[in-house]
Amino acid sequence: MGSNPTLSAILRRPWEVKNALRSSKSEGRADLLPPGYEWHANDEIRNMMYYVYLIRSQVDANQVYTGFTENLRQRLLDHNAGKSVHTKKYLPWTLETYLAFSDRNQALEFERYLKTGSGIAFAKKRLRPSQTKSLKMENLER
């Protein structure tokens, strides 16, 4: 295996690739890292995920917020602590759906899409099954 590992090699032999990637860092070749991985201070390679999430207000079920974060747990805590101007009015919030991306730009593009008219319709139909289920149950009870 040369100094330029392929993704298939990374997936097959991570213990061998780790050394190759370390040497690539010393050569200034961080571009050899696969998408979603980054170097950290202690020279570890860590998988970095980016999240697009939908949260729903517990006081007004019609209020749904779509966001992007690198730390989903902390972001939800921040929303519920009132640290976001956009969600402060409808505290508390519950996580309804999240999607994890290894590529930051792809996650940001998907978040932007979910905030468009088409994306809102997509999210209602495909990403919020609990709401869809409850609406269908209401129709059955009538």
Rank of each mutant, 00 (worst) to 15 (best):
T6C: 14
T6L: 08
T6F: 09
T6G: 11
L7C: 12
L7T: 07
L7Y: 15
S8H: 05
S8W: 05
A9V: 01
A9D: 10
A9S: 07
L11W: 08
L11T: 00
R12M: 04
R12G: 01
R12Q: 08
R13V: 06
R13L: 05
R13T: 07
P14H: 13
P14I: 14
W15H: 12
W15R: 08
E16H: 11
E16V: 09
V17M: 06
V17Q: 01
V17L: 01
V17P: 00
V17D: 02
V17F: 02
N19T: 08
L21S: 03
L21C: 03
L21F: 12
S23E: 14
S24R: 14
S24N: 12
S24T: 02
S24P: 01
K25F: 13
K25P: 06
E27T: 04
G28Y: 15
G28D: 13
G28Q: 12
R29K: 15
R29Y: 13
A30L: 10
A30I: 06
A30C: 10
L32R: 15
L32S: 06
L33P: 03
P34H: 10
P34Y: 11
P35I: 10
G36K: 06
G36S: 07
Y37E: 04
Y37H: 13
Y37I: 03
E38T: 06
W39K: 03
W39H: 08
H40T: 15
H40K: 15
H40W: 08
A41H: 01
N42Y: 10
N42D: 15
D43K: 07
E44N: 13
E44D: 14
I45L: 11
I45W: 13
R46P: 01
R46F: 11
N47L: 11
M48P: 01
M49T: 02
M49F: 06
Y50I: 01
Y51P: 02
V52G: 05
V52A: 10
V52N: 03
Y53R: 04
L54R: 04
L54P: 01
L54F: 07
I55C: 08
I55F: 05
R56E: 15
R56I: 06
R56D: 02
S57K: 05
Q58V: 01
Q58G: 00
Q58R: 09
V59T: 09
D60L: 14
D60F: 13
A61D: 12
A61H: 14
N62R: 14
N62T: 09
N62W: 09
N62M: 07
